[in-house]
Simulated scan of single mutants.
Amino acid sequence: MRRIDAIGIGLGIFIIGGLAYLGFQVFGLDGQQAGIWSQVVLVIGLIGWLATYVLRAVGNNLTYHQQREDYEQAFFQKRLEELSPEELAKIQAEIEQEQQSH
């Protein structure tokens, strides 16, 4: 994440909190109650974001893992394309022999 992205996210959250505060005041809450409820909304949002992050981390569904899998697939595909037909047939025969032995 770039520095400007982090600044933008922080500014966006600050604006959302301010809009929630103003929204609660429009619906009739006094300043203190509006502040409390806007903080509740932001904390619930933070907990929700954290929960999605934890679920993605536990399931290895993060961007890093996906990029690594894509790289490995591309690497093995390129290596496979570089093999001669004889080498490919030899590897295929080895795989079939190994499957029959199990």
Score class of each variant (00 low, 15 high):
1 M>S: 15
3 R>E: 12
3 R>S: 13
3 R>W: 06
4 I>E: 15
4 I>T: 14
5 D>F: 14
5 D>A: 15
5 D>Q: 11
6 A>C: 12
7 I>F: 02
7 I>K: 09
9 I>D: 10
10 G>E: 00
10 G>L: 00
12 G>T: 05
12 G>D: 00
12 G>F: 13
13 I>P: 03
13 I>D: 04
14 F>R: 13
15 I>H: 11
15 I>R: 12
15 I>E: 00
15 I>M: 12
16 I>F: 06
16 I>A: 15
17 G>I: 00
18 G>I: 03
18 G>A: 13
19 L>D: 04
20 A>H: 09
20 A>V: 01
21 Y>W: 06
22 L>Y: 04
22 L>V: 08
22 L>E: 11
23 G>P: 07
25 Q>T: 08
25 Q>D: 02
26 V>P: 01
28 G>T: 07
28 G>I: 03
29 L>Y: 08
30 D>G: 14
30 D>Q: 11
30 D>I: 05
30 D>Y: 11
32 Q>T: 10
33 Q>Y: 12
33 Q>R: 11
34 A>L: 09
35 G>I: 01
36 I>W: 04
38 S>D: 03
41 V>H: 06
41 V>G: 09
42 L>N: 10
42 L>Q: 10
43 V>G: 14
43 V>A: 14
44 I>C: 08
46 L>P: 04
47 I>H: 12
48 G>F: 12
49 W>D: 02
49 W>Q: 12
49 W>P: 05
49 W>F: 00
50 L>W: 01
51 A>T: 08
51 A>P: 02
52 T>H: 11
53 Y>F: 09
53 Y>D: 09
53 Y>P: 04
54 V>C: 04
55 L>G: 14
56 R>L: 14
57 A>K: 14
58 V>N: 10
59 G>L: 09
59 G>C: 15
60 N>T: 11
61 N>L: 06
61 N>M: 10
62 L>P: 00
67 Q>C: 05
68 R>D: 01
71 Y>V: 02
72 E>N: 11
73 Q>M: 13
74 A>V: 03
75 F>L: 03
75 F>D: 05
76 F>P: 01
79 R>D: 00
80 L>I: 01
80 L>R: 07
81 E>K: 07
82 E>P: 04
82 E>G: 04
82 E>S: 15
83 L>A: 06
84 S>R: 07
86 E>I: 03
87 E>K: 15
88 L>H: 00
90 K>Q: 02
90 K>F: 00
92 Q>M: 07
93 A>G: 09
93 A>M: 02
93 A>P: 01
94 E>N: 03
95 I>Q: 09
96 E>I: 00
97 Q>H: 08
98 E>L: 06
98 E>N: 02
98 E>T: 02
100 Q>E: 04
101 S>G: 13
101 S>H: 06
101 S>Y: 05
102 H>Y: 07
102 H>T: 02
